[in-house]
Design a protein around this nucleic acid. Structure first.
Lengths: 227, 227
DNA sequence: ATAATTATGATGACTGTCCAATATTTTGAA
DNA sequence: TTCAAAATATTGGACAGTCATCATAATTAT
């Protein structure tokens, strides 16, 4: 019998919601539990072993299910991976949109908080950063991944650019808001990659500091003040 | 283990030159041609199909050789890939060190030129950016790739940090040079990834502008001038 | 000639999907 | 409520395909 509950050490934030559900109560509860288990297991497997190494065997073992079950809940392995990818995009965007909509914070505060959100729970988790890196890498040759990644970038930048404009107006300086938003997004990407691989000894706190420095740098620089 | 002994002139953009070299003149010329062809073909295959998709078949077809030839010139496929990775690291570092050592340029000019070098020929090429992304991604689970990537980062940052110090001294401002160097390196990484995937519609010229903006931002910001 | 180089077939390991068998839950009629 | 039939969930073996490596054969340079 394989009713293994997913261990807390491997659980991503989402699973906190599903950890309480006993694997077999009603069928509909069970369906939810299985699908969530597989989605989380897919992220973890991709993080640990890359997409090509995230075999059906490994994903299902991680989810506490047998090989054949994957086909029962998803059309294919690709379908599962794509679903997992899309799920986390929506999650991340929703959190950032929530910050942008908050009535009590200044534009500058929102900018800070949004950029920090990428490096703090519940949005940040090593597995997610690593999986994001893997999917981004795979988007070079697998067009199925390229599209959601593209729209995620566009949506995030569309959220951030107006904030740069607003802050610049407040401060009386000018910024190329679109370029600043793109730069911040790309820096974010680099920071996530660095955290995923551990190649620069970075910590999430340091990543936040780099975001702050970038934002400050954009805002203290008048346009065209080269040299 | 086979060591890489390709001359500096054998860069990927000069693949056309290999075409001019008659594959079979003397045996020693031929050896060099074959090894270089395989190294370049490995980079191209990894860029196009990722590491797991860079099969012996594809690499050898790309190099215009038969499957069995790989084993003749390299211990294994892994050996070839690692050799290709190391080769391009040495190449990149050598170019940047050359800029840093130039007697006629100011520290600020060197900083600019070094950061731009990542996005201009001969160092920049889509295949190299894409392969770098693939190797960095793979370094998460393949320790063989992690080590050269780590040292590449350390070496580059060690080259750049003193330049930040020097410029700050010239300008009379202060910078956390180490942090600025790390940030620039990580931004570089993000920019390469963006160029490799094409996800943000970035061009190499725009990447250079982002580097400039980052450098200007670092230098116009006194330490601790948060607000 | 003969040693180095190049090409190809064979082998065993691994993969995702399919499918038939088994177990469990749900349904609904008595 | 009870209980058999239907629906659903789960398992693990079979299968066809792909891969890197190795052994061997064919080709070429010296």
């Amino acid at each position: 019998m394989h009713n293994v509950e997913i261990e807390a050490s491997d659980s991503i934030e989402l699973l906190a919601d599903f950890g309480n559900i006993s694997p077999r109560r009603t069928q509909s509860e069970n369906q939810r539990f299985r699908r969530a288990s597989l989605l989380v297991a897919a992220i973890i497997s991709v993080a640990k072993h890359d997409i090509s190494g995230a075999t059906v065997d490994r994903i299902c073992a991680q989810a506490g299910a047998s090989r054949g079950l994957l086909g029962h809940y998803f059309d294919s392995k690709e379908d599962l991976l794509l679903s997992a990818l899309s799920y986390w995009f929506q999650q991340a965007l929703a959190i950032k949109q929530g910050i942008a909509r908050h009535p009590d914070w200044s534009a500058r505060e929102k900018l800070r908080k949004i950029s920090h959100a990428s490096f703090e729970p519940p949005l940040y988790d090593w597995h997610i950063a690593a999986a994001w890196q893997a999917f981004t890498n795979a988007s070079r040759y697998n067009t199925a991944y390229a599209e959601p990644i593209r729209t995620a970038g566009r949506d995030t930048q569309a959220l951030v650019a107006p904030l740069f404009d607003e802050v610049a107006k407040d401060l009386g300086t000018r910024v190329d808001a679109k370029s600043a938003a793109t730069g911040l997004y790309i820096l974010d990407d680099g920071l996530w990659n660095s955290l995923a691989t551990g190649k620069d000894g970075l910590t999430p706190e340091m990543a936040c500091n780099h975001c702050d420095a970038y934002i400050n740098g954009c805002l203290s620089n008048a346009i065209g003040s080269d040299a």
